[in-house]
Computed example of a mutant assay.
Amino acid sequence: MSKLSEHDIEKRLLQFPEWEYYEDALHAEFEFDNFKDCFSAMSRIAFDCEALNHHPEWTNVYNVLTITLTTHSEKGVTDKDFKLAEAIEAIVEPEED
């Protein structure tokens, strides 16, 4: 897995409006109605992290989840980070029927 160019990252981010790129990582912050909902989303995200064998840097304060994605072995953003961002989006921003 190789590090993506800044141009490729910016192009892919068009599909992820909640995410920003800086300091060689993808960053997002999600606000939930309460702590329980936030922690529930984190628990569901954890299963995708394990399935992808890729783990975020994240913090949770009450109802806010802050996530940073980077591939440490490549010292930057790779396809793996975007795959995890996509899985996270499906959990925190489910599509409406």
Rank of each mutant, 00 (worst) to 15 (best):
T70K: 01
A87Y: 13
V61Y: 09
I67S: 08
C49V: 06
T71L: 15
D24R: 04
K36R: 07
T70Q: 07
S5Y: 02
Y22S: 15
K80D: 04
E23T: 01
D24S: 12
F47V: 03
I9V: 03
M42Q: 01
E23H: 00
E29I: 06
A85D: 15
D79F: 00
T68S: 13
H7T: 06
N60T: 01
E29W: 09
D48K: 05
D33N: 13
M42E: 01
E89D: 13
S40T: 10
F16M: 10
F30C: 09
E74F: 10
N34Q: 12
T59V: 03
S5G: 03
D33Q: 13
K36M: 09
R12W: 08
L14Q: 10
Y22C: 15
E20A: 06
K36V: 12
K11W: 12
K11P: 12
K83C: 03
C38F: 13
S2D: 07
E93W: 14
F35D: 06
Y21T: 11
H55P: 05
L84D: 05
F47P: 08
M42G: 08
F47W: 04
W58T: 11
V64Y: 00
L52N: 04
P56S: 11
E89I: 10
D8Y: 02
K75N: 09
N63T: 09
L84T: 03
L26Y: 13
S2V: 00
V92S: 13
I67N: 03
H7R: 08
A51Y: 06
N34D: 15
T78Q: 14
D81S: 05
T78S: 15
W19E: 13
K80H: 00
E10G: 04
L65M: 10
H72Q: 13
G76P: 01
V77S: 07
F47H: 00
T78P: 15
F47T: 03
N34G: 12
F30T: 06
N53D: 15
G76W: 01
F30H: 03
A28W: 05
T68P: 05
A28E: 11
E10C: 07
H7W: 07
M42A: 04
Q15L: 12
E57V: 13
S2E: 07
F39G: 06
E93M: 14
D79A: 00
V92A: 14
E96H: 14
E6D: 11
E6I: 09
H54V: 03
L84P: 02
N53F: 06
F30V: 09
V64R: 10
D33M: 14
A25S: 15
V64I: 08
W19T: 03
D48P: 07
E74D: 13
